[in-house]
Computed example of a mutant assay.
Amino acid sequence: MLQFARKDHISFSWQTRFHDRIIRNQKECNAIADYIENNPMNWHLDELNIF
């Protein structure tokens, strides 16, 4: 991503506290997919959610 931004002269910076994670197997991939799919349903429980 950073190389693309530099090549095309696009301002770019990583999000704070961003980190990569290598998905090592199908079980881990499924768990991450479930989290992504179901996380919006938990927004109402987030104390920092102002909406």
Rank of each mutant, 00 (worst) to 15 (best):
M1E: 10
M1D: 09
M1A: 13
Q3T: 14
Q3H: 11
F4Q: 10
A5R: 02
R6A: 12
K7V: 04
H9F: 04
I10N: 02
I10P: 00
S11L: 10
S11M: 06
S11K: 13
S11G: 09
S13K: 15
W14S: 04
W14Y: 15
W14N: 07
W14C: 05
T16R: 11
R17I: 03
F18S: 05
R21M: 08
I23D: 01
R24I: 03
R24K: 14
R24E: 11
R24F: 00
N25G: 05
Q26V: 07
K27P: 00
K27I: 09
E28F: 01
E28N: 04
E28H: 06
C29R: 14
C29E: 15
C29V: 00
C29M: 08
N30E: 15
A31C: 08
A31V: 04
A31M: 11
A31H: 06
I32L: 09
A33Q: 07
I36A: 06
E37N: 11
E37H: 10
E37G: 02
E37S: 09
N38K: 13
N38T: 08
N38L: 12
P40K: 08
P40V: 07
M41Y: 10
N42T: 13
W43A: 07
W43K: 11
H44G: 05
L45E: 12
E47A: 11
L48A: 08
L48E: 11
L48K: 13
N49Q: 04
I50H: 05
F51R: 11
